[in-house]
């Protein structure tokens, strides 16, 4: 079979009919609202429980609110969405499954750790360009307290966080894609994707996620530039998910070594979302929600204003579980690249 014209290189796709961004929603917690990007989020709430009883229910509520917000802004009803791609960090994706029940949209649950926004967006776009759906939605979330409970310590447990740790973002972001432009659609399309491989450089320190994920991010950025024969200058911004200050250094370093200087374009959601001096967040923000709300709040707005026209968005995930960590395994990373362009 002849290779389809959509496929580029080993890992990349450029869509034939790039799907439009019809709407997007971003819901954030108190700390995120107080951060530098606070004004870009659609809805913020000072109550970390979002009027629910448990952290897990709160995260589900976040997803529900994000989906509703995206639908409202797109002027659509949930029944018009053919497929939903969603996931989160909690065991067995409970935040997503419980959060989106009321929407009654056929759903694929995806897990890409903190790279889930990129993964779900990639699949949502592929489903449309492949001709399997008219409209799709991608959603993900994370909650600081739920993530601490599952991956670290109980909230009231007294411990010092090393400088390299990140702060899990409380928030949820949803994006609706469509084959054709609608009335409320933004002038933004998903031009293509670069899917990442699992990359493991043997780092075992779960308190230094940036270093675990940086090789994966660099790998995807490199593959994207190589596959599509582009220079970093093609993009106005190259935005990673939650590498933090240490991961950022490493990513730039790796790519420089491979012959690409991305210092000019590079940005990391985890670094942008908090003010480390004032908010005591150490290496930056992390979690699915970090890249999700930065994308759906800040990045989409900058594209809408045409301040940026071409963005490579690469959320990054650390593929560990408390079990794999306790059993002495290293922490592999993954990253998913999505190319967003204005039209």
């Amino acid at each position: 079979m002849a290779q389809s014209s959509k496929i580029y290189g080993k890992q990349s796709i450029l869509f034939e009919n790039p799907p439009y961004v019809l709407g997007c929603g971003s819901i954030a917690g108190k700390k995120e609202a107080e951060g530098p990007l606070g004004s870009y989020f659609d809805l913020t709430n000072d109550d970390p429980l979002f009027s629910k009883k448990t952290w897990e229910e709160a995260e589900s509520e976040l997803q529900r609110l994000a989906c509703d917000m995206a639908l409202k802004k797109a002027g659509l009803e949930s029944k018009e969405i053919r497929y939903l791609f969603g996931g989160d960090l909690l065991g067995q994706l409970i935040a997503t499954s419980f959060g989106i029940i009321s929407l009654e949209i056929p759903m694929f649950g995806v897990y890409g750790a903190c790279s889930t926004m990129g993964e779900s967006l990639s699949l949502a776009a592929m489903a449309i360009d492949g001709g399997f759906a008219e409209k799709t939605m991608a959603v993900t979330s994370s909650h600081f307290a739920g993530a601490e409970k599952q991956f670290r310590f109980p909230l009231e447990y007294g411990s010092q966080r090393p400088y390299s740790t990140t702060w899990t973002v409380t928030g949820s972001g949803a994006t609706i894609l469509g084959k054709t432009k609608t009335k409320n659609a933004l002038d933004i399309v998903v031009k293509g994707i670069t899917t990442g491989k699992v990359v493991d450089y043997g780092v075992k320190d779960s308190m230094n996620m940036g270093a675990c994920m940086a090789p994966a991010a660099a790998d995807v950025i490199y593959a994207n530039l190589k596959d599509l024969d582009r220079k970093p200058e093609y993009y106005d911004r190259i935005i990673t998910g939650d590498l933090g200050v240490i991961g950022k250094e490493i990513t730039i370093d790796i790519l420089r070594e491979k012959g690409y200087d991305i210092t000019e374009q590079y940005m990391d959601c985890g670094i942008e979302i908090f003010n480390p001096e004032e908010q005591d967040t150490h290496s930056g923000g992390s979690g699915c929600g970090c890249s999700a709300i930065t994308l759906n709040g800040y990045v989409m707005e900058m594209l809408r204003r045409k301040e940026w026209n071409r963005v490579l968005f690469i959320p990054t995930g650390a593929l560990l579980s408390p079990t794999s960590y306790n059993e002495g395994h290293s922490v592999p990373g993954i990253a998913h690249g999505v190319i967003l362009e204005t039209v």
Binding site: Q160, P162, Y163, S164, N208, A211, E249, I250, D253
Partner: peptide, 8 residues
């Protein structure tokens, strides 16, 4: 990584 990670 050890080199680039700042210490407390």
């Amino acid at each position: 990584v050890k080199q680039v990670t700042p210490k407390f």
